[in-house]
Lab assay of single mutants.
Amino acid sequence: NQASVVANQLIPISTALTLVMMRSEVVTPVGIPAEDIPRLVSMTVNRAVPLGTTLMPDMVKGYA
Rank of each mutant, 00 (worst) to 15 (best):
residue 28 T to Q: 10
residue 51 L to V: 12
residue 38 P to N: 13
residue 19 L to Y: 11
residue 2 Q to K: 07
residue 30 V to Y: 08
residue 41 V to T: 05
residue 63 Y to P: 04
residue 49 V to R: 00
residue 50 P to Y: 11
residue 4 S to H: 01
residue 59 M to Y: 14
residue 64 A to I: 14
residue 24 S to L: 05
residue 30 V to E: 15
residue 40 L to V: 05
residue 11 I to S: 02
residue 28 T to V: 13
residue 33 P to E: 05
residue 61 K to R: 12
residue 23 R to T: 08
residue 51 L to Q: 15
residue 20 V to H: 14
residue 26 V to P: 11
residue 56 M to G: 05
residue 50 P to C: 08
residue 24 S to E: 10
residue 24 S to C: 09
residue 32 I to V: 06
residue 8 N to S: 14
residue 11 I to T: 00
residue 51 L to P: 10
residue 8 N to L: 05
residue 24 S to I: 08
residue 56 M to H: 06
residue 53 T to F: 11
residue 23 R to L: 05
residue 35 E to Q: 14
residue 37 I to V: 05
residue 36 D to E: 15
residue 20 V to R: 10
residue 10 L to S: 12
residue 61 K to M: 10
residue 42 S to P: 00
residue 2 Q to D: 15
residue 2 Q to S: 13
residue 59 M to L: 04
residue 1 N to H: 12
residue 62 G to Q: 09
residue 26 V to N: 07
residue 54 T to V: 14
residue 4 S to F: 03
residue 38 P to R: 08
residue 1 N to G: 10
residue 11 I to M: 03
residue 13 I to Y: 10
residue 4 S to N: 02
residue 27 V to M: 07
residue 27 V to F: 03
residue 33 P to R: 07
residue 7 A to W: 03
residue 6 V to L: 07
residue 44 T to P: 07
residue 29 P to Q: 05
residue 12 P to S: 06
residue 27 V to A: 06
residue 52 G to T: 00
residue 52 G to C: 04
residue 55 L to G: 02
residue 60 V to D: 02
residue 63 Y to R: 04
residue 26 V to M: 11
residue 46 N to K: 11
residue 21 M to A: 05
residue 6 V to I: 12
residue 19 L to N: 07
residue 21 M to R: 00
residue 22 M to R: 00
residue 36 D to M: 13
residue 59 M to T: 05
residue 57 P to L: 04
residue 7 A to S: 09
residue 33 P to A: 13
residue 15 T to I: 08
residue 40 L to N: 00
residue 38 P to Y: 08
residue 36 D to W: 08
residue 61 K to D: 14
residue 10 L to W: 12
residue 36 D to S: 11
residue 48 A to T: 15
residue 28 T to H: 09
residue 22 M to Q: 00
residue 46 N to A: 06
residue 47 R to K: 11
residue 32 I to Q: 00
residue 53 T to H: 15
residue 42 S to M: 15
residue 37 I to R: 07
residue 54 T to M: 04
residue 11 I to F: 03
residue 28 T to Y: 08
residue 14 S to Q: 14
residue 62 G to V: 04
residue 11 I to H: 01
residue 15 T to L: 05
residue 52 G to V: 03
residue 38 P to H: 09
residue 2 Q to I: 13
residue 49 V to D: 01
residue 36 D to G: 07
residue 44 T to V: 12
residue 11 I to W: 02
residue 1 N to Y: 14
residue 60 V to W: 00
residue 19 L to W: 11
residue 52 G to H: 14
residue 16 A to C: 08
residue 5 V to G: 01
residue 11 I to C: 03
residue 6 V to T: 06
residue 43 M to Y: 14
residue 37 I to H: 02
residue 40 L to W: 02
residue 21 M to T: 03
residue 31 G to F: 03
residue 41 V to W: 00
residue 63 Y to L: 05
residue 61 K to Q: 12
residue 41 V to Q: 06
residue 40 L to M: 06
residue 49 V to A: 05
residue 43 M to R: 07
residue 64 A to K: 14
residue 48 A to S: 15
residue 63 Y to G: 04
residue 15 T to V: 12
residue 35 E to A: 11
residue 53 T to A: 13
residue 39 R to K: 14
residue 3 A to G: 12
residue 3 A to H: 11
residue 26 V to Q: 12
residue 56 M to T: 10
residue 14 S to I: 04
residue 57 P to M: 07
residue 23 R to W: 03
residue 12 P to D: 10
residue 32 I to S: 01
residue 10 L to P: 13
residue 22 M to H: 00
residue 17 L to N: 02
residue 32 I to W: 02
residue 54 T to F: 03
residue 20 V to W: 12
residue 62 G to F: 07
residue 28 T to P: 01
residue 4 S to E: 01
residue 64 A to Y: 05
residue 28 T to C: 15
residue 21 M to N: 12
residue 8 N to T: 12
residue 2 Q to G: 15
residue 18 T to I: 04
residue 51 L to H: 14
residue 37 I to Q: 04
residue 60 V to S: 01
residue 36 D to P: 00
residue 2 Q to N: 14
residue 48 A to F: 10
residue 63 Y to Q: 04
residue 11 I to V: 06
residue 42 S to F: 07
residue 10 L to D: 15
residue 20 V to L: 11
residue 39 R to N: 08
residue 38 P to C: 15
residue 31 G to P: 01
residue 26 V to Y: 09
residue 4 S to D: 00
residue 16 A to G: 07
residue 5 V to D: 03
residue 58 D to K: 08
residue 62 G to D: 14
residue 30 V to M: 12
residue 3 A to Y: 08
residue 27 V to C: 06
residue 1 N to M: 15
residue 2 Q to T: 15
residue 60 V to Y: 01
residue 49 V to G: 01
residue 56 M to A: 06
residue 40 L to T: 01
residue 48 A to Q: 14
residue 43 M to C: 10
residue 42 S to L: 08
residue 55 L to C: 03
residue 1 N to A: 15
residue 45 V to C: 06
residue 7 A to R: 01
residue 34 A to C: 06
residue 56 M to R: 12
residue 29 P to F: 03
residue 27 V to Y: 02
residue 61 K to F: 11
residue 45 V to Q: 02
residue 6 V to H: 02
residue 53 T to K: 08
residue 29 P to N: 04
residue 39 R to Y: 11
residue 42 S to I: 03
residue 34 A to M: 10
residue 36 D to T: 06
residue 64 A to F: 05
residue 23 R to A: 07
residue 12 P to T: 09
residue 43 M to P: 01
residue 32 I to N: 00
residue 64 A to W: 04
residue 18 T to K: 11
residue 4 S to M: 03
residue 48 A to H: 15
residue 42 S to N: 11
residue 61 K to G: 10
residue 27 V to W: 03
residue 49 V to F: 02
residue 59 M to H: 09
residue 1 N to S: 15
residue 52 G to Y: 04
residue 18 T to H: 05
residue 44 T to Q: 11
residue 17 L to E: 03
residue 30 V to C: 07
residue 5 V to L: 03
residue 39 R to E: 07
residue 14 S to Y: 15
residue 1 N to C: 06
residue 55 L to Y: 01
residue 11 I to P: 01
residue 53 T to M: 10
residue 14 S to V: 05
residue 20 V to C: 08
